[in-house]
């Protein structure tokens, strides 16, 4: 009797031991995975910095490209990216904020309308960015722009071609979900108490939103805007054929001008430039600029968002 029970115990223990060895191995693998990811992040950053830092200077940032893009700086690409994201933000932020207000304040959670809007927003968030490019081409340029030309200019080509405004609006559509999600999250952190206080004082719903909810969501709106700008500055696929160009000798002056952009610049320089090796430092430096830009914007947004979440708890 005693013997068998011992055997059982031993076997049991052995079984557990084996299992736990595997478990320890798998836990080790999970740590390894984290290390790998962080290694990748650090190496991308490190290689971009080491490859581009020496070329990076105020002059590089403020000069036009020279000698068929083999020399000079990236000034027009920076300005182009800035203009595009600003116009984009002007379109995406109001839309996003209003939609977020609807979802957080007006829509009943269980209503089909709210569910459909939510699904639409999620769809916008997962549709490949190249599809937005196609949409921009087919809708903004091919439909809106062409018809504007017919109505406003008697068919003369002005709006029905790739340009700053169409690229910006295309990008606005792509970044809309970013704004909506950030703002809605911020609105939902405003305590119910505050809304009730306002309503109990006889404020209407809209007064409550305007005077209590929106002022409390300012940081969320800011986060959403920053994240959207960061995303918009980095995306290239939607502007490939809606307005970005390889080279411009001047800055865009009108909404229907084309523009240079940092991301597009990197793409063209690294894949289609006449002399890839000679321009390598410029490419690295441009990539570094774009990376630092999106990176710092994201970091700011993370900090603000962290504060909002802290406040919510």
């Amino acid at each position: 009797m005693l013997k068998t029970s011992n055997i059982f115990q031993l076997q049991g223990r052995k079984g557990i031991l084996n299992r736990s060895t595997i478990d320890i191995l798998v836990e080790g693998l999970t740590i390894l995975a984290v290390v790998v990811i962080i290694f990748i992040i650090v190496s991308i950053l490190g290689i971009m910095i080491s490859g581009g830092w020496s070329r990076l200077s105020l002059k590089f940032l403020s000069e036009y490209p020279k000698d068929g893009m083999t020399k000079g700086g990236i000034f027009p690409a920076i300005i182009g990216t800035a203009l595009m994201t600003i116009i984009m933000a002007f379109a995406a932020v109001p839309f996003g904020v209003i939609t977020a207000i609807y979802l957080a304040e007006y829509a009943s959670e269980r209503s089909i309308i709210a569910k459909t809007i939510r699904f639409a927003v999620k769809t916008l968030a997962v549709v490949p960015s190249i599809i937005f490019g196609l949409f921009g081409l087919g809708f903004f340029i091919g439909f809106v722009g062409k018809n504007m030309d017919v109505i406003l200019n008697g068919g003369e080509l002005k709006w029905g071609q790739p340009s700053l405004i169409w690229a910006s609006l295309t990008m606005a559509l792509l970044t809309l979900p970013v704004v909506i999600v950030s703002v809605e999250e911020a609105i939902r952190t405003i305590p119910r108490d505050m809304r009730e206080a306002s309503l109990a004082l006889g404020a209407t719903k809209w007064q409550t939103i305007r005077k209590v909810v929106l002022p409390g969501s300012v940081s969320g709106i800011l986060t959403g805007t920053i994240l959207a700008v960061s995303r918009g500055a980095g995306e290239v696929a939607p502007i490939l054929f809606t307005g970005a160009v390889y080279f411009m000798s001047d800055l865009p002056h009108a909404l229907n001008d084309q523009f240079m952009s940092l991301g597009y610049h990197i793409y063209i320089m690294s894949t289609q430039s006449a002399n890839v090796d000679e321009t390598l430092p410029i490419q690295f430096a441009t990539t570094l600029v774009l990376l630092l830009l999106t990176f710092s914007l994201n970091a700011i947004a993370v900090v603000i968002r962290y504060r909002i979440r802290k406040r919510a708890n």
């Binding site: 990811i37 992040i41 991308i44 980095g234 995306e235 991301g263 774009l290 990376l291 999106t294």
Partner: peptide, 17 residues
């Protein structure tokens, strides 16, 4: 947040890398 920073890398940067 560090891993999520990877999401902030523009795909053109990853492509370039």
């Amino acid at each position: 947040p560090v891993i999520e920073l990877l999401a902030g890398f523009p795909s053109v940067v990853i492509g370039f890398f």
